[in-house]
Nucleic acid binder design. Sequence first.
DNA 1: GCAAAAGTGTTCCATTTACACCCATGC
DNA 2: GCATGGGTGTAAATGGAACACTTTTGC
Lengths: 229, 229
Amino acid sequence: MGLAGHEVVAAVLQVRAGSLQVMLWQRGKEPHAHRWSLPGGGLGDEEDVETSIRRQLAEKVDVRQLSHVEQLAVFSNPARVPGARVIATAFLGLVPSDIDPVVPSDTCWHPVDSLPPTAFDHEAICARARNRLAAKLSYTNLGFALAPPAFTISALRSLYSAALGYKVSATNLQRVLSRRGLLEPTGATAPPGPAGGRPAALFRFVSGEMRVTDPFAVLRPPSTRSLGP
Amino acid sequence: MGLAGHEVVAAVLQVRAGSLQVMLWQRGKEPHAHRWSLPGGGLGDEEDVETSIRRQLAEKVDVRQLSHVEQLAVFSNPARVPGARVIATAFLGLVPSDIDPVVPSDTCWHPVDSLPPTAFDHEAICARARNRLAAKLSYTNLGFALAPPAFTISALRSLYSAALGYKVSATNLQRVLSRRGLLEPTGATAPPGPAGGRPAALFRFVSGEMRVTDPFAVLRPPSTRSLGP
DNA sequence: GCAAAAGTGTTCCATTTACACCCATGC
DNA sequence: GCATGGGTGTAAATGGAACACTTTTGC
């Protein structure tokens, strides 16, 4: 194993059954036996932290279809884990809602709203992940990482509502994302439900790479003429 | 020294002489002799990364008056430094424009626009620091960390212009910051210059702690009545 | 009085929200 | 036909940008 005293962990989030959930595994041994823990582990000699967390998620829990991975922060409190000192680089990982990864028997998903007893500082890491996701949904195209390849606007609305924690209007969601050029219609439609109703058009995200779409909320650079240096 | 293979470094930024500058020291020895480097060093046994970078800045370069410190990211490319592997937690540090820290003779300030040859990945870290500062000036009260205890609006305008890299209007700057409740008049005024002119009122920032002031650019929660879950 | 710098009032514009209305389908 | 969900048109509100105008000083 590579660098001693350093680990990488990830809060992998997905919207499942209408709520935002995080993947946790239950520890079998001390310390913190039976508590729930984020996946992760040591850093290899030849890998950077992002490569490492992707490898470990793929090896340990078969999460290969991450639609987005980004660094959150370093957690370095000397007492964060008992025993020899370990500092952690924490990541946010996202999985589209149509994927159901095969996970080991000690691993399952938990709503971020009601976490079971967690190990170490993993609750704080989950909270950080959640906040980062909510913030970026507002000013980037990160919705692509929660959504399947094609979706109706109302399906997208549920994803955003679950991730943000409050109801989002389908009308305005479509308008905002369309005006920013993030959505395009696939041309196909979804069949209506048993109760009838107009068939919903299917959309896709134009890009699968994260991009900032609302860079300057205020204090924009002057628009037309230069005001000088 | 504490944890092997891990260091903390900081891009300390300050607006000096109308431009945004970063504090760098010139390396005397290999590797990367004569190149310019960010201050930092190893992590002690009993300190977390933020405590560590604050200690090192205070010890090595007498920067005790940091108005703001925040984590940027971990830089972990296995080849980022020659020899034994070292990963770095990078910080952004800010110093108010009225402070002139005493720095060692090998250390000086450089405009972030025209950096000298830098060591390792320190140029990328500077770029990250700069971008973070510019972004947070727009949606937080972080201006307090660049400004002296009391200042005129046009002085504040220069600070924002230097940090953002483009001209900011004094009129709108005052309006935006006042509406958000970030500024308050001290009651005093600054004397006009030799050419005359109306004396400028002095202002201060209400808070010296960073706070997000513009949390939802779009996709706000519904305003009045709840739409249900 | 005049120039210079500071501050305010007003208008304009972009964007988002809210809501009413129209559309397409199953029964 | 009518209930049900989907989509659009449109008005209202928000908030920032631009710019003209007033205020206060030095000379």
